[in-house]
Amino acid sequence: MSKDFLRISPAFEDVMPAEYRELVASGPYGKGYGISDLGSHKELLEEHPLCAGCGLALSLRLTLSVLPAPEDTVIVGSTGCSALAFPQVALHNIHSLFGNQNAVASGLKRALKLRFPDKHKDVVVVAGDGATADIGLDMVMQSWFRGELITTIMLDNEAYANTGGQESGMSPKGAVLYMAPKGKKFQKVNMPELAREAGCVYVAAVSPANPKRLGKAIKRAILVAREVGPTYVQIFAPCPTNFKFKPQETIKRIKEREKDGTYLMREYISPEAQEYLAAMEGGTKDE
């Protein structure tokens, strides 16, 4: 099906770099792939410059592998570590000014609706915790109050990683970072609860330690945002570089935090969203 969506002009087939030919031959466009299809096709993200063991990189790989319609998806990003991966992602992507991502996404979604009235164009915000819960909180909340049909995904590494380790609203109380040596003085912001109160009709907190659950949440959030209302997914994506743990321990860290109750995984589905999903999920892959 990628072949129907993406075709190289035959005269230039031989000079196209292999990466593009592979995307045409076995990319995920139009296929409706899920987590269990990973390894069987050319992925949207393969190389990236993020650190070894980066929770963001792992979460992005999983997130991109379950987009319901990658060919009709635009990702709106913000400054931060995840932004460094996007030049290598084979999707439409807008890098917005730090903190403005939900405002940009709102305008984009409305414009796409006018331009393609008969088609679902999925606008998905992917940004860090600093961009979402601190500096862009105003834009994020206002987009939810207005009921914008967009999905907001927070990659929560509990710090401003890209600028060298400052505390964010999402850092846990007591967190000590390179540029927060005295330890954070207040609690982690309860964003899932804020999202629900602000009008999100689907809210989930997930992690790459449970890829199937993560995949299901992303799919649900994007589908629900097509017609029912704004949605929010928070992905716990720890940062080995700033929290000084070994790269191979990322998943272990997540599991420990889940076990000791300091990172709660959860899912909230409004009754309208529930009804919509029941109809949608009848015929789609359950992941």
Partner: peptide
């Protein structure tokens, strides 16, 4: 011929 398949500032 060398192609410019897209405009991503590949990093």
């Amino acid at each position: 011929v060398i192609p410019m398949p897209d405009y991503r500032p590949k990093y």
